[in-house]
Amino acid sequence: MGIFSRFGDIINANITALLDRAEDPAKMIRMMIQEMEDTLVEVRTTSARVIADRKTLERRMARLQEEAVEWERKARLAISKGREDLARAALAEQQAVEEALRQASREVDAIEEQLGILNEEVGQLQQKLDDAKAKQKSLQVREQTNRSRMDMHRSGSREKLEEAFRKFETYERRMDNMEAELESRDLGRNRNLHEEFEDLERDDQVEEALAALKARMQADKRSDD
């Protein structure tokens, strides 16, 4: 189904308003341009046909003009020969031809008026078509600009994301290094702690031995007394 139903719809159309209401402006403008171009072809075809009709009428008028002149010549000849009856008949034919000539002239005038209207319509259609094509180009530029901005945005977002990953990886590596260093310190600290407990156990053994020795010495002293 076409967007426009008649020539007047195209001429009176507000392209911007139609595009603002369209779900797909790019598709809508393509349809508009196609319909305008089709209508323009139709109007120009009609104009060509009317021009052809005018040329046909102009040729007919030229022949009628020649006939009128010829009938007048015959009427003059008849009068010169004393044949008024033939002169009257010739003049009657001349009048009929001249009436046909006047009718053809009125038809040519009507055709000229129609051609003037068609020429104006072609001009209006062409202007609307030029406006639509300009709007289409503007939409294409806007679409390309938006696409480029989206690509740049996606590219920028990707770079930021990659940068965040790199920072996170660096942070993880730093944490790994710190944990490794702490573990290495803990390993050394665990060995010292073990040795300390061994020392404590040795101290306990020494104390026990010392206490035992003192007990024996006390016992020996009591026995000497």
Rank of each mutant, 00 (worst) to 15 (best):
K137S: 06
I111Y: 02
G188L: 13
S105V: 02
K160G: 04
Q127P: 02
Q140C: 10
L118R: 00
Y171V: 02
R158M: 09
L125H: 01
A100H: 06
L193M: 13
N190I: 09
T170V: 10
D109F: 06
L115A: 03
G123H: 10
K137L: 07
V108F: 01
E113Y: 05
G123T: 15
R158L: 13
A132W: 04
E181L: 07
M178P: 00
N190G: 06
D151V: 08
A96Y: 01
D131C: 04
K135C: 01
Q124E: 14
E179P: 00
Q136D: 03
A100Q: 10
S105A: 08
A134P: 01
N119I: 01
R173H: 08
D131T: 10
D131N: 14
K128N: 04
S157N: 11
D176P: 00
L182G: 02
R147P: 01
V141L: 12
K128Y: 07
R102W: 03
M152T: 15
K137C: 01
L129H: 13
K128S: 03
Q114T: 04
Q140S: 13
R154F: 15
Q103T: 14
K137T: 04
T170L: 07
R154Q: 12
E107G: 03
T170W: 03
A134H: 08
R191E: 14
T145G: 11
G188D: 11
E159V: 06
R189E: 09
R189D: 08
E183T: 12
E113H: 07
Q126A: 15
Q144I: 14
L118C: 02
R166C: 05
T145F: 09
D176E: 06
A104H: 00
H153C: 08
L101A: 05
Q114K: 11
Y171L: 05
S105G: 05
E143D: 10
T170F: 04
N146M: 14
E172M: 07
E112M: 13
R147Q: 14
E112L: 15
I117M: 10
G116R: 09
N190A: 14
I111D: 03
L115T: 02
Q94T: 00
Q140P: 00
K137H: 09
N146E: 15
L125R: 03
M178S: 05
L129P: 06
D176I: 02
V122Q: 05
K167D: 11
Q103E: 08
A164K: 12
S105T: 07
E159G: 01
K160E: 11
L118F: 01
N119F: 09
A96F: 00
R149I: 11
D130S: 13
S184L: 13
T145L: 15
H194Q: 12
L187P: 00
H153E: 15
F168A: 14
Q127Y: 07
D151T: 07
K133S: 05
N190C: 07
E143L: 09
R174V: 06
E143Y: 12
N192G: 03
L115P: 00
I117Q: 09
E195I: 07
D186A: 13
Q126G: 13
